[in-house]
Design a protein around this nucleic acid. Structure first.
Lengths: 211, 211
DNA sequence: AACCTACAGATAATCGATTATTTTCGGTAG
DNA sequence: CTACCGAAAATAATCGATTATCTGTAGGTT
């Protein structure tokens, strides 16, 4: 693995984990020193973050963690609520047996992954977050459109970042029941119901952060 | 303006203009020499292209123009046909007087821009392409959601690239009538009709390249 | 007291050269 | 004739240093 890969992965994880507050300057020199690499490598990693929307570039003034917050999170959720239900309709129309199997598998993994790392934790575990992402992505993979999936990935990543700097999630919410309902509707080939449930699920998640 | 800005803009224009065939290697050393800058600058420009999806990165094997074609163009059109009608509904519901004025203005500009640079040209003029983009973007701007607009920008750019390497457009098509119909429906606040017309417009454009 | 200006420190942008990896091209054995 | 191997060339990755630009502050002016 190249040095810039390592620095990039490390930085990306740190930003998504919320180790830097929004608008925090990301200084190439400091990052280079910390990781024991040269400036060029640190710059390259930062450029890649910018491409992914995980860093802002201020010309002549360096890089910074993007300013996010509840408002942007709402916009991301709304964008998802436009795209994903429509994509799910396509997936329901086109998905084959392999897709059905993948949906079942990813939901099973999600349902079997504990919400919290340890009882009393304030934030969901990385494992659950990843299983959650995989479930939602698998649902859409049936549409067979790579561009749609790239768009999903982008919005999901942006959402992960913005969510960190919004309020904590509503713990009382029974997300699993919603996931199960979406899965059943999709596999029953009920496009309208599946799309509607997914739309509500996305907006419901967003609403639980608004308060 | 910084050197990397210049190289980046120049490269971006060249790629979008189709000066490099798909899968053409983009060699940092060559670009640096050609533009009279150092390797680091050329690399930075390429990294930015990658972030925008206008270049592919093959680890340890450099950069290349993304492999595109009719198939990818169809996928992009389909992705747009999922997102944009839904966004237009929002815009119709939320757009204010300023939005209405902007829509009228951008359509007027589009209608007044000649399709071809000179009679007999094989491809539409840059001016028309830009006016076309502005019209479609303005339609969606009424939704007031920056994330949706970023997604639109991304898909449009990707479409510009892929379209170059697809077949030529159907010249007999009367695109202006479709644009006018969409504008009228949107300003009449007929969300369903506007969304339907936009969806057909996108898919129609895609279909005209399939043959 | 408020505002401009020059200086100093910090930091971004750029460069030229070095190192590591991949690809290519002969050459040789099977 | 084909397949494998190794040296040479090409090129990607990385480095350390230099130059240009910005930011904040101290000092002077209105």
């Amino acid at each position: 693995m190249t040095a810039s890969e390592r620095v990039y992965a490390s930085l990306r994880a740190a930003v998504l984990e919320g180790q830097f507050p929004p608008c925090q300057a990301l200084k190439p020199q400091e990052l280079a020193t910390r990781h024991g690499v040269s400036l060029a490598v640190a710059r390259e990693a930062l450029l890649r973050l910018v491409g992914e929307g995980l860093a802002d570039r201020l010309p002549k003034r360096g890089f910074a963690v993007p300013a996010t917050g509840a408002e942007r999170w709402q916009q991301i959720a709304e964008a998802r609520s436009l795209m994903e239900p429509a994509a799910l309709r396509l997936a329901v129309a086109r998905g084959d047996l392999e897709w059905e199997a993948a949906v079942r598998a990813s939901h099973h993994r999600l349902a079997g992954t504990p919400f919290f790392e340890r009882p009393g934790d304030t934030w969901v575990s990385d494992a659950w977050a990843e299983a959650h992402r995989r479930f939602h992505r698998t649902l859409l993979e049936g549409c067979g459109n790579d561009v749609v999936l790239e768009t999903f990935d982008r919005l999901w990543t942006a959402g992960e970042l913005a969510r960190r700097w919004s309020l904590a999630a509503d713990p009382a919410r029974d997300a699993d029941a919603e996931h199960r309902a979406i899965e059943e509707a999709a596999l029953a080939r009920e496009a309208d119901r599946a799309a509607d449930l997914l739309c509500r699920h996305i907006l419901h998640t967003a609403a639980s952060l608004k308060s």
